[in-house]
Simulated assay, not measured.
Amino acid sequence: MYAFLWMLGAITSFCLLAIGGRELDSDLPITPMLFFRSLISLAVISLVLLLIREKSLISVKRLPLHGFRNLVHFAGQYCWFLAMSLLPLAEVFALEFTVPLWTALIAALVLKERITLRKSAAIILGISGVLVIVQPGAAMFEAGALIALAAAVCYALAHTAVKSLSSTEKPVAILFYMSLLQLPLALCFALPQWQWPHGIQWLWLTLMGVAALSAHYCISRAMLSAEVTTVVTLDFLRLPLIALLGGLLYQEAVGLSLFIGAALMLAGNLINLAKPAGQKPRQADTQQTPAPD
């Protein structure tokens, strides 16, 4: 029950993040949006750290890896928000669920994790799901779908870095340096197309900054309350919810192929996360839920 409530909070946060991005995409360029979102997130997490007065929570031992993680994560965010301006929200969310599959491939190359028969089956199912969604042929080369997949690959690289960082760094430190390091990065890219937010745009930016942090927090709490397979299954409820919101708010049509492809990817994710009887999930496995913060 607790896991369901925490995942409800995470799903709500992700949907608010996506809606905020969609509301701003026609009025505010992506890079200034990412700058102000990072600024607001940094202000919120800094305030929390000041209140609890625990400086040790943000001490780090591997700053260069934090730098790499945030570089690829920033690229993933840019592609994610760009894809949302080109595709229905549900399709972006569906393609994002390939993150665990790309993570398995990248971890095998970088962290020398073994590609087992189970992981191979998961990857095949995931790729099959992508092909069903993007429809082989001309649509396979649709810019929006390719950009969404690029976002998923960038997120997978970031997740692989987090899997490595989690052995030495605290989760709060990873979130703090995510906001701190991405702030100047976003500023550099935002300056050529600088635009100050105004009016209700500040409300959407504040909502996005808070939602990004709350999504991470809710997922981490859900992981403590239930097995990772349960959390991943609940996370897929994002898809019908965002499809419903996309239809109600933006008149977006969603075809049956999207849900068939998403079901294949869900099966692949569950196979990838399944453990032999009697074996407990490793802590690193909890990093495999996609989070487009």
Results as ranks from 00 to 15, higher is better:
residue 226 A to T: 08
residue 226 A to D: 01
residue 226 A to I: 07
residue 227 E to V: 08
residue 227 E to S: 07
residue 227 E to I: 10
residue 227 E to M: 04
residue 228 V to W: 04
residue 228 V to I: 07
residue 229 T to L: 05
residue 229 T to Q: 10
residue 229 T to Y: 01
residue 229 T to A: 03
residue 230 T to I: 15
residue 230 T to R: 11
residue 231 V to D: 04
residue 231 V to C: 09
residue 232 V to H: 15
residue 232 V to T: 09
residue 233 T to Y: 03
residue 233 T to S: 02
residue 233 T to E: 05
residue 233 T to R: 11
residue 234 L to Q: 07
residue 234 L to C: 03
residue 234 L to K: 15
residue 235 D to G: 07
residue 235 D to H: 00
residue 235 D to P: 07
residue 236 F to N: 09
residue 236 F to P: 07
residue 236 F to C: 13
residue 238 R to A: 04
residue 238 R to S: 14
residue 239 L to P: 14
residue 239 L to R: 14
residue 240 P to C: 09
residue 240 P to R: 08
residue 240 P to D: 03
residue 241 L to W: 06
residue 242 I to N: 00
residue 242 I to H: 00
residue 242 I to Y: 01
residue 243 A to S: 08
residue 243 A to H: 15
residue 244 L to A: 00
residue 245 L to W: 13
residue 245 L to G: 10
residue 245 L to A: 04
residue 245 L to I: 13
residue 245 L to E: 13
residue 245 L to H: 12
residue 246 G to L: 08
residue 246 G to Y: 05
residue 246 G to I: 06
residue 246 G to S: 10
residue 247 G to S: 04
residue 247 G to P: 03
residue 247 G to I: 00
residue 248 L to Q: 06
residue 249 L to Q: 09
residue 249 L to R: 10
residue 249 L to K: 09
residue 249 L to T: 12
residue 249 L to V: 09
residue 250 Y to G: 14
residue 250 Y to W: 14
residue 251 Q to E: 02
residue 252 E to A: 09
residue 253 A to Y: 12
residue 253 A to P: 03
residue 253 A to S: 09
residue 253 A to L: 12
residue 254 V to A: 05
residue 254 V to H: 12
residue 254 V to W: 13
residue 255 G to M: 06
residue 256 L to F: 12
residue 256 L to P: 08
residue 256 L to D: 02
residue 257 S to R: 14
residue 258 L to A: 11
residue 258 L to H: 01
residue 258 L to Y: 06
residue 258 L to T: 07
residue 258 L to F: 10
residue 259 F to V: 02
residue 260 I to M: 13
residue 260 I to Q: 13
residue 261 G to H: 00
residue 261 G to D: 01
residue 261 G to N: 07
residue 262 A to H: 10
residue 262 A to C: 14
residue 262 A to L: 14
residue 262 A to I: 12
residue 262 A to D: 10
residue 263 A to Q: 08
residue 263 A to G: 15
residue 263 A to C: 14
residue 263 A to R: 15
residue 264 L to W: 09
residue 265 M to S: 03
residue 265 M to K: 01
residue 265 M to V: 11
residue 265 M to Y: 00
residue 265 M to Q: 00
residue 265 M to I: 05
residue 266 L to V: 05
residue 267 A to G: 12
residue 267 A to C: 05
residue 268 G to N: 12
residue 268 G to A: 14
residue 268 G to V: 12
residue 268 G to H: 05
residue 269 N to T: 15
residue 269 N to H: 11
residue 269 N to S: 14
residue 269 N to R: 14
residue 269 N to V: 15
residue 270 L to G: 15
residue 271 I to D: 04
residue 271 I to R: 14
residue 271 I to V: 14
residue 271 I to N: 13
residue 271 I to K: 11
residue 271 I to H: 08
residue 272 N to P: 05
residue 272 N to H: 03
residue 272 N to S: 03
residue 272 N to I: 02
residue 273 L to D: 02
residue 273 L to M: 06
residue 274 A to I: 00
residue 274 A to M: 06
residue 274 A to R: 14
residue 274 A to D: 10
residue 275 K to W: 15
residue 275 K to I: 13
residue 276 P to K: 07
residue 276 P to T: 00
residue 277 A to V: 11
residue 278 G to V: 04
residue 278 G to E: 04
residue 278 G to M: 11
residue 279 Q to D: 11
residue 279 Q to F: 02
